[in-house]
Design a protein around this nucleic acid. Structure first.
Lengths: 138, 138
DNA sequence: TATGCACCCTGTAGCAACTACAGGGTCAAG
DNA sequence: CTTGACCCTGTAGTTGCTACAGGGTGCATA
């Protein structure tokens, strides 16, 4: 299987496959006489794993750790759980941050019904209407 | 006002202030004899504006556009609204994506009560249990 | 006066996680 | 035998900073 076929099978760009190899996530495959990468089903499985983990928002570092754990079937499952739970916490934090942004944006957008920037509540909210005194500017 | 004071007043790092200047968000201030940047209240206002917009998640490009609009008080307010609304849509999309991630993560994490990676549901979910056949691997 | 320290300067390199290109080689079909 | 689709390496770009390295400035204190 050439890199293009592997990429297509996993909905990944060819450049990204090579990037994962360089990043140490995907082991370097055998090469043909023409120096083309030649992949087998083990690579397909591994890249699928990487894609799924990335889709769940795991960082490349986390994916590397998960792959290492997955490779040693005797390792304790708790380590996997710890990575996933830590990531879940992080995702929940991001959601909370974004929800706060969303609420504030909605509040700000809803407050403006004027015509020009001079009266715009949005601009007003962003920059406090301090007297346009320059102090010691330029 | 020196760069350090401006930075402190806006909870910004000194390097970030210089970065905003290079990025064209903050106009270059006057310099002292020693070539130190010298800021006035106009700069303080502008940097505050930038910070607030950034806290709301606007990109630097969007902030640049907002600043341009804010500078011309005759401009129509609708342009501001368009930028903010577009950003709100984007934020809502991100929230939806993250919530989907969170739900899936919770599902996956909750499903595993085993001891080792061999039985771990999390790993199982990430890599489909295809027979560990290598096909034409290395 | 010296010297130490906090502050300032420029310019560049690094982070994540790719993506895109430049400038080539390979291979099968028409 | 040429066209096109594929492959190769290596580097630079993206966003929004952050962190140096390698200097200069300015004030207070011993």
């Amino acid at each position: 299987m050439q890199i293009g076929a592997l990429a297509k099978a996993t909905a990944t760009k060819v450049e990204t496959v090579r990037f994962y190899e360089k990043a140490g996530l995907l082991p370097p495959p055998a090469r043909t006489d023409a120096n083309y990468r030649s992949y087998g089903s083990a690579h397909l499985q591994r890249l699928s794993f990487i894609r799924r983990a990335r889709d769940l928002g795991f960082s490349l570092d986390a994916v590397r750790d998960l792959l290492e754990l997955a490779d040693d079937r005797a390792k304790p499952c708790g380590a996997v759980d710890a990575i996933a739970s830590g990531h879940l916490t992080e995702v929940e934090r991001k959601i909370a941050d974004l929800c706060a942004m969303r609420d504030e944006l909605k509040r700000v957008i809803g407050s403006c019904q004027r015509d020009t920037v001079a009266d715009c509540k949005i601009i007003e909210t962003l920059g406090p209407r301090v007297a346009a005194d320059a102090g010691t500017p330029a």
